[in-house]
Structure formats: C-alpha cells, structure tokens
Design a protein around this nucleic acid. Structure first.
Length: 258
DNA sequence: ATGGCTAACGCGGTTAGA
C-alpha cells in the first residue's frame, strides 16, 4: 500500500498534474492540500473515472483538503471527520478517513506568516488542538498516519540555509517543539526512518529560481504511529512533478506500507 | 535588498502563500 501527500496549490490549476501523477506513481491513497476551491467545484467525476474515490473539505479561494483512495480499497464512510473536532474554525484544514485498518489524516497546517504575528498565534492554537485530538484519535485508531503540509521544517537538515532561516517562521523553536510533541504521541517521521540524500526538500519558492538552486525546505511530512512505522518499507520525495510546466511549489511525498 | 513568483478574485490591485 502506497500512501502519499501533496500540496497542489489549487486543484483547479493542478488537476491534470494530479491525474498524471496518480498514473505514474501508482499510489493507493493521496492526501491533497490547498485545493483552493469550494466543494461543488471538486472534480470528483474525473477522479472517479480515473479509478479513485474522493472525500474532501473545501472552501472558496483558500485552504481545502482531500483524500483520494483507489477503488477496491475499503473506506469506512461512517467516520469521515472534517476539521478538528471541538476546534471552531472556518478554515478547512483537516479531513480524516479510515482506509482499511488505517486512520488517514490529511492536514494543511497554518502557515503562520511571521513569528509573533496574529497568524502565528493561530498556528500555535491550531497545533495545540491538533495534538490533543490526535492523542485521542490514536487511542481509537492505533494505526494512524498524519500526512500533509506541516509548514514546519523539523530540523536544520530540512533547511537549505539554516543560518539565514534561523528563528524564522517555519523553523522557529516554538514550531519545532510542536512537531516534537506530535512525535511524542508515538509518531515517527517516515522520511527519517530511511537513508536519504542530503538536502532533499519538499517545497521551493516560486521566486529567485529557488528550485534550480535547490533553495528549499522539507515541510511536507508523513508521520506514522508505531504499528505503521514498523511496516513502512520506504519513504520518498518525488521531485519530478516540481519540474513540470506550471507546477505546484510543493513536491509529493510517498510512503510504502508493507 | 523582505523583493523576486503564482493563484484567487475580478478586471486593477490586493491578499496570501512559505
């Protein structure tokens, strides 16, 4: 079973990229972020025709998350969760579904804008709420995977220029402490379970020829509970779609379970 | 040098991303 996450930065613009990548990557579950479209505009019929069922929580213009699951794989329709239960939020950033025996969570963490800003304070509140909900969720679903755009680079290895970025939004100690708290729930960073090339990132700014210079950050992650981490045999970043015409600024991340 | 590019909204320039 291959599970993946991809911030597509507008599903309207990236629909064909997602279709092409589903075909090439042969993933079974794809978590999407930054759909940037309302639910009525989600191209469900097109994904259905390509052999995938879809669940999503969209909104106009911003945010929006979804989960695509290859047909033939069992999904429990009765316990889809949208947003963090108990955390009142008009921004659509979380959707969870039970796929076979795995709890799959697709999450678009707040960006935070700048340390100390109102948006950063919202990011901290959101992270607290996510942490508490996941703690409870993992008791019900021991096989849990949290996939998404975390907007946190957990380590200096995940930053192209750690000196320039020191203390900034996305790498600040406060954000990294939240990442550690998620890990301390019993989650493992699938990417770091395996030998990886140096300076492999998942996001590169559209500006400054950042992709060509590999001036990126690793901010998209797959965290696995112990039972899933034990069965995980690979985790890779696929940089190829970032090279396509009119790409998302994020690359997909894939984990192989089993 | 805090910009540089891209997308949404909507039709010009603002907001947001990371």
């Amino acid at each position: 079973m291959k599970i993946a996450t991809w911030n597509v930065n507008s599903l309207k613009v990236r629909q064909q990229h997602v279709m092409d990548w589903l075909q090439q990557s042969q993933v079974d579950v794809l978590c999407l972020q930054e759909l940037k479209l309302p639910n009525e505009k989600f191209p469900c019929a097109e994904f259905e025709a390509a052999g995938f069922k879809c669940w999503f929580a969209g909104q106009k213009t911003y945010n929006g998350v979804g989960i695509l699951v290859r047909k033939g794989i069992a999904v429990d329709e009765t316990n889809i969760v949208r947003n963090i239960p108990g955390f009142e939020d008009p921004q659509q950033r979380v959707i969870a579904a039970t796929v076979e025996d795995m709890r799959i969570v697709s999450a678009y963490f707040p960006n935070g804008q700048a340390v100390g800003s109102e948006k950063f304070a919202y990011k901290m509140r959101w992270l607290d709420a996510l942490h508490d909900w996941l703690g409870a969720e993992m008791k019900i679903h021991p096989k849990l995977a949290l996939l998404g755009d975390y907007n946190i680079a957990p380590d200096d290895r995940d930053v192209h220029d750690p000196k320039a970025w020191e203390g900034q939004n996305l790498v600040s100690p406060e954000e990294r402490a939240h990442f550690v708290r998620l890990v301390e729930l019993g989650l493992t960073d699938a990417f770091r379970q395996f030998e990886q090339p140096e300076k492999l990132f998942t996001w590169w700014d559209y500006r400054m020829l950042a992709f060509r210079r590999n001036a990126g950050l690793r901010i998209d992650h797959i965290l696995l509970s112990a039972e899933l981490a034990a069965k995980c045999s690979a985790c890779e970043v696929d940089k190829v779609p970032r090279k396509w015409e009119q790409p998302s600024d994020h690359a997909p991340v894939v984990a192989t379970i089993g």
